[in-house]
């Protein structure tokens, strides 16, 4: 992995990889969508079960993106590597967008089930808190003018956030045991009918491929951007 920390080697390695990921994402999304709508409706949830196929993958990869952000932050802090900093920054927006999608689709999934647009159950609340973690990270990064300082401060927060996330998740789960949620029908708590596995796993893989493509593309863009900035600075000096 450390061989990739060299920007040139990273670019060379990800050059052919990224289009493959894009293609894979497109393929899996297409197949997943088709599967999601050809599978029969659930006898309990009706057609709303199809929302699960966009809700859970978004939530899972929203979390995965944060893990990527946190781990990148760790490497950025400990090894002071610019590539790691670029990786952390690149994961933030896609991750936050996925998490927001999870919240939105979760709300739509819940309305027909629970009759309200939001339910404070453990899972949705955890996703909301994850979203807040993203907001804090992005706000911090945006509020510091010096790019290097912003990167380091954000790396500290990213790492602290990653360490805190299990704790916050635990506290939300613990909190949930105190207050029985208004409804006991938590989607997905009853075992998943095996007929839904195919669309679910396909969409899960699709979102994963898409995140990977988005993330790598953003890192590559960031590497180029920094190179441009360096070249421009050099030119301004020589002029």
């Amino acid at each position: 992995m450390f061989g990739l920390s060299n920007p040139q080697r990273f670019m060379a390695f990800t050059g052919p990889l990224t289009p493959v990921l894009w293609g894979l994402a497109a393929l899996l999304l297409g197949v997943g969508a088709w599967l999601s709508f050809s599978v029969p409706a659930d006898y309990q949830q009706g057609d709303t079960v199809r929302i699960m196929f966009v809700h859970v993958p978004a939530a899972v990869w929203g979390l995965g993106a944060y893990a990527a952000l946190g781990v990148s932050s760790f490497f950025a802090l400990v090894f002071r590597h610019a590539l790691a900093d670029a990786a952390a920054r690149a994961a933030a927006l896609p991750g936050a967008a996925f998490t927001a999608l999870a919240l939105f689709t979760g709300s739509l999934w819940g309305q027909p089930m629970w009759g309200t647009w939001w339910v404070w159950d453990a899972r949705l609340t955890s996703v909301l808190v994850l979203f807040l973690f993203y907001l804090g990270y992005m706000a911090l990064r945006a509020s510091i003018d010096d790019e290097q300082k912003a990167g380091r401060a954000a790396a500290v927060l990213g790492l602290v956030g990653l360490i805190n996330l299990p704790i916050v998740k635990f506290s939300v789960d613990w909190w949930n045991t105190l207050h029985q949620p208004a409804s006991f029908l938590t989607p997905g708590s009853s075992g998943l009918d095996p007929v839904y596995l195919a669309p679910f796993l396909t969409m899960l893989a699709a979102y994963g491929a898409l995140f990977a493509a988005l993330w790598l593309t953003a890192i590559r863009t960031e590497i180029r951007r920094r190179r441009v900035m360096t070249l421009r600075a050099r030119q301004a000096q020589e002029a």
């Binding site: 973690f133 804090g136 911090l140 509020s143």
Partner: peptide, 23 residues
């Protein structure tokens, strides 16, 4: 400490810290 030198320190600190206050 994280918000040192940042713009809008008070609000920024709140946004960063309140999620961590949850536990």
């Amino acid at each position: 400490a994280l918000a040192l030198g940042a713009k809008r320190g008070g609000l920024l600190i709140a946004v960063v810290v309140l999620p961590l206050f949850i536990p």
